[in-house]
Structure formats: C-alpha cells, structure tokens
Nucleic acid binder design. Structure first.
Length: 466
DNA sequence: CTATGGCACGGATT
DNA sequence: AATCCGTGCCATAG
C-alpha cells in the first residue's frame, strides 16, 4: 500500500525524546537553520549526496528501485503514496516530472493577483524596477499585504530604501488600492490619500488610522475623543467613514470583521513542509505525499570520523566522543521527526481524502486527540507535528497543516455555497434553517461568526442575486 | 420588531 | 493550564 516505509526507530532515551520534541515543532525553514548550525559546529556530522532516479529525478530509497518509475502504483489509484523528497524538488517542479509542465501553470494559482497588478504598473517602470516589483508582488500574503520587510528586499537587490519605497508606492496605487503595503494601516493610508484627491476626507482620519484607533470598540470612543480633543460624535463619524471607504486587506474586496482575522496574526507561507500532488502531475495517477527534507542529501554520522576516533590522541578522544554521540543523536532525532510526520500524514491523507481532492466542503472534522489515539502517541506529539507546518494541496494552494483540523470549515463552505446561490439575501436566522435542512446544526449566532470569518456581508448589505 | 454585532461564559481541545 | 470555539444574552441599528 504505501510505497516507501521509513524504518522504525527503536531506542528512546530522555535526551532523544526531548530533542525530538523540539525538532518536531519546527517548520522546514527552521529545521534547515538548525541543521546548518549543527553541521557547522559538529565535525562528526556530514551530508552525503543522494542517488537520484535518472528518469524522474526523485530521490531513491536506500535500497530497491525508484518507487515512482519502476513501480508505478496505478493498481491502487485511491491509495496515496507517501515518500520523502528533498526540497529541491519544490524549486524545480518541472524538472522533477516526466511531462513538461509549463512553469507558469505551476504558479498560476498564486500569481493571479501579482500579474494583474504588475500589468498595470509595468509601463511606468524601468526594466530593473520591474524585476523588483515582480519580486515584491510574489511576496504578498493572501490579504494582499507584503509578507517580507521592505529592507530585506532592498538589501537583496542592493538598492537604497528610497528607491524601494518609490516602487512600493507605485504598487500600492495600483488596482486593489493598497496592495503591497507593509501593514493594514499603510494600506488604508494610501487609500485615504487617493480618495482625498476626489472628495474631502474627515479631519484627523490620517492620525487615527496611524495610531490604530479606528479598531477600538465604541465604548472606548470617549477615551479617543479626549486624546484628540474632539467631540465623541466626530470620532464616531471618522470611524464610520473609515469603515465604509477603506479596506485594510486590499486583496479582499470587502470588509471582514476587523478583529476576527487579527491583522498581526496573518501567516506567511513560503515553503510548504509537505506537498500533495498527483504523480507526475497527472490526475490519472495516484496521489503522492512528499514530506520535504531540508537537506539535499542524507544527513549522517561521518564514518571516517568514527574510524579515526580510535587512533586519536587520548586527550581529544573525550571531546570527539561527545561530538559523535551528539551527532548520532541528532540524526536519530531528525529521523524520528520524519517518521512521526509520515505516520501522521498517512492517516491524515486517507481520512481527508475527499477534502484534498474535492475541496473545503468535504472536510471531515477531526481532532488531534483522536488521531493521537489511533497512532498511539501522545496528544502533544500530534500538536507539535502539526504546528508551524504548511502543506501544498494538489490544486497548488498552500495552507497551514492545522487547517486539516478545522472543525467548521465544511459548514462554512456550505454556508458560502448557500449564500452564493440565494436569490434574495437570507438573514442569519434563515441561513440556520437552510443549513439544518442540509444536516448541519448551528446556532444563529454562529452563522454570524462564520460569515465574518469568510468575509461575507450581512444580509441587508448583500446584493440580491439574479 | 427584526437582524446583527459585542461580550462573556463554559465546555472542548491542545 | 492555556487557548479556542460555539453559543446565549443583551444592546443597538435599521
């Protein structure tokens, strides 16, 4: 069934356990840093090159043939293949497949907004500026905000911050006004600026947004009013204006609940830890689950180091022995990490099969606790394994692995469907009934929350559908 | 009076 | 022990 079983790891010392747990919570980027650090200070560790399958370029298991080419598992199309892969495959997706997949197709899902924006501003940019703009635009999060510090980009391209800011400003003025801003405030300020060219804007609006005071709830208005020495009514009006005219998340075309998707908690996803895709990008093939390795080769204890330790000076032997122990422990811990994640994914992928292939609507709620029981590991192990990881689905969307445990995603997605299909806008209470008819039992108040989560407007603000 | 958002409580989950 | 999530109650807007 599964093509590539990782070897079970037997002995568990407390030190082993502690380090494994620490490593388990790390994302792939953090793990890479950790490995680099260990590699630098421990001479007993080394990385050896992998053997690759000449046809499909996938990493070969230590023994046997390539699981992809030599033994295609088309006999079991419903069962996922789980195997490990070096992260290189992520960067060279087309090189890693048998068929030629055009590169832009690979990133099509992610690049819709970026290319749209770039097309608008391209004419007014020089060639090198265009490259920088493209770089910035590929680092937008799902809300349309910049996911990297501007300085980082400036250093990367060796250009002064002033140039960087100029380019960013041009991006910000492009269609979803405010895209590429570093923060929600920045996005709103640029919107405010553009609006002010057409009509008048309330006094002090700029200051209030800069200080983030528009986020305050109503009972704090008196405090704010005092702060600016203005009547409460005016504060109220300004906040109302801000709410009606500005959009803190340029990529969303509407206001969600401002406090619900806490702006600073917006996650940035760059490198997925796990990739689920069809073998060789062909939907006819079974699914493959790649758990990305942070290294290009295999991390191992340097065998030369092992032998030479016998002939070493007596004084140094102690130190070397320590290094050796540390190294082998580290390698074991990392293997343990993969082992855990792999076992987790095997269960998860089978369980959420429909969700992975067919979308949000088919998400089956599952708790970490129940999974831990099935795998007979501690709950916290699952929690750690899921934490800080992202996963790329066959449709190229990258979501946090924790999304697999979303309790309400299926209901929310059905809710969205109902609203999309409704003729007249339905009130929350009516939506409760519609959902109940489809077998989902939810309270009225909860509908409101789900709407907010999905950024859907309340009934009286929605347009009647044709 | 109806629809919706805010706050807070309690149970489940981590 | 800390956090998350669904829900009930109440205030407020329309």
């Amino acid at each position: 069934m599964f093509q590539y079983q990782y070897t079970e790891i037997k002995p568990l010392t407390t030190a082993h356990l502690a380090q494994t747990m620490a490593l388990l919570t790390l994302s792939i980027d953090e793990l890479q840093q950790e490995i680099d650090a260990q590699l630098a200070k421990n001479p007993a560790l080394e990385i050896i090159e992998e053997r690759r399958c000449p046809a499909c370029h996938k990493r070969l298991p230590p023994k046997g043939k390539c699981p992809i080419c030599s033994k295609p598992s088309t006999e079991h199309p419903d069962e996922p293949v789980v195997f490990l892969s070096p992260r290189e495959d992520f960067y060279q997706p087309s090189g890693a497949t048998h068929q030629d997949v055009p590169e832009d197709q690979f990133s099509a899902a992610v690049e819709e907004l970026p290319t749209y924006v770039l097309r608008q501003i391209a004419p007014e940019l020089k060639e090198n500026e265009r490259i920088i703009a493209a770089y910035l635009l590929t680092h937008l999060d799902e809300d349309g905000l910049l996911s990297i510090p501007l300085i980082e980009a400036a250093q990367y391209f060796h250009v002064p911050m002033s140039t960087m800011k100029e380019i960013q400003t041009k991006i910000k003025k492009a269609d979803p006004i405010g895209v590429g801003s570093c923060s929600t405030q920045e996005a709103m300020l640029i919107q405010l600026e553009l609006i002010s060219e057409q009509k008048s804007i309330p006094e002090y609006a700029t200051e209030i947004i800069t200080n983030g005071d528009h986020l305050a709830s109503k009972r704090h208005y008196p405090d704010i009013a005092k702060k600016y020495n203005l009547p409460v009514k005016q504060i109220h009006d300004i906040v109302k204006f801000v709410g009606e005219n500005l959009n803190p998340f340029p990529a969303r075309s509407y206001w969600g609940n401002v406090r619900q998707p806490a702006p600073e908690a917006v996650q940035v996803y760059r490198q997925p830890d796990i990739i689920i895709s069809y073998l060789n990008e062909d939907p006819e093939n079974p699914l493959s689950v790649e758990i990305i390795l942070p290294t290009f080769g295999t991390l191992q204890v340097n065998p030369l180091f092992k032998t030479s330790i016998k002939e070493a000076d007596q004084e140094k032997v102690d130190d070397w022995k320590k290094d050796l122990d540390k190294a082998s422990l580290f390698v074991k811990c990392i293997q343990q990490r993969y082992n855990t994640i792999q076992r987790l994914m095997q269960k998860l992928v089978v369980y959420q099969h429909d969700f992975i292939l067919l979308g949000d609507k088919y998400m089956k709620p599952i708790t970490r606790a129940s999974l831990s029981e099935e795998l007979s590991v501690h709950e916290s192990t699952i929690s750690r394994a899921v934490a800080n990881k992202t996963i790329q689905l066959p449709n190229k969307k990258i979501i946090p692995l924790a999304g697999f445990f979303d309790r309400s995603l299926n209901v929310r997605s059905v809710l969205k469907e109902i609203i999309e299909q409704e003729k007249k806008p339905l009130s929350d209470a009516k939506l409760v009934q519609s959902l109940q008819a489809r077998g989902y039992k939810v309270a009225r108040r909860t509908i409101a929350k789900y709407r907010a989560m999905e950024g859907l407007l309340p009934a009286h603000l929605r347009q009647p559908n044709a």
